[in-house]
């Protein structure tokens, strides 16, 4: 039943992608727009394949992903510490709430000029932006998750002789998993957008440069097909992580357990 539905969804997606492709091709072939700025699909795909084969796009994608991974990990650690201390100390809770209220509405990209002044351009600055994008939504969600845990769970933990550390490890952490996943999804989405923009502004300072730099470079050389290739990769990775990875992870965990929020 579910499998059939999945197939259907997949077929529906494919159908509309093909339709959109045909519309695109018709517009391109009609030459209403200049072919260099509105390339045909085969030129576009050929350019993408060329960039994949010579490794350019792969290296830059991996570089962007590695930056995100570092930023996410760092953000995760900071969030766990911030939310953990908030749960223990009332004083600190007020502090964290205030900091989140100030920092959360600030888009990462708006911080770029300041970060450049403080840290220069380079990997450290990009990771700073990523951490900023991740830490606030994740902390907010972790806090919401901890607060939403039924009191009865803690009572059961104490009843069976668990100390505070074991209660956190065996009860509070798994019980807040739905909120954790939500936080991670928002964090990822923000980090992914932040990293592409930051790379475009920073360029390839110090190393290979990432996907953002890749599409920026293509623009500079008026390589529209290459630029679209970069965009396609960005879309594909977004779909892969948001629709496939998180979806699958949720199906294996909170959806199976009936814990979705």
């Amino acid at each position: 039943m579910t499998n059939k539905f999945m197939d259907n969804k997949f077929i529906i997606r494919l159908f509309w992608i093909v339709i959109l492709g045909i519309i695109w091709q018709v517009i391109a072939l009609s030459e209403v727009f200049n072919l260099t700025s509105f390339p045909r699909i085969e030129t576009l795909l050929a350019s993408l394949i060329k960039d994949i084969l010579n490794g350019d796009i792969i290296i830059q994608t991996l570089y962007s992903l590695s930056l995100i991974f570092k930023g996410l990990m760092l953000g995760l650690i900071i969030s766990i510490i911030l939310s953990g201390i908030s749960m223990i100390s009332k004083v600190f809770e007020g502090f964290v709430d205030t900091v989140i209220a100030i920092a959360h509405p600030l888009p990462g990209i708006a911080l770029l000029p300041l970060v450049i002044l403080w840290m220069g351009i380079g990997e450290r600055a990009i990771i700073f932006i990523i951490v900023h994008s991740v830490v606030w939504p994740l902390t907010l969600n972790l806090l919401a998750g901890f607060r939403a845990i039924p009191n009865i769970y803690k009572q059961i933990g104490k009843n069976y002789g668990l100390n505070s550390l074991k209660i956190i490890r065996y009860i509070l952490v798994p019980a807040s998993l739905p909120y954790f996943i939500t936080g991670l999804k928002i964090g990822w989405a923000r980090a992914w957008r932040a990293v592409i923009s930051a790379e475009m502004v920073f360029g390839a300072a110090g190393s290979a440069g990432g996907l953002g730099w890749f599409i920026f470079k293509k623009r500079v050389f008026m390589d529209t097909s290459g630029l679209f290739g970069g965009l396609i990769v960005i879309i594909l990775i977004g779909i892969m992580i948001e629709d496939l990875f998180f979806d699958k992870f949720e199906k294996m965990t909170i959806k199976k357990w009936g814990m979705s929020i």
């Binding site: 039924p150 009865i152 009860i171 357990w257 009936g258 814990m259």
Partner: peptide
Amino acid sequence: FQDFNQLFPW
């Protein structure tokens, strides 16, 4: 407890 939620859903 009375609460059905006393089991850990995971």
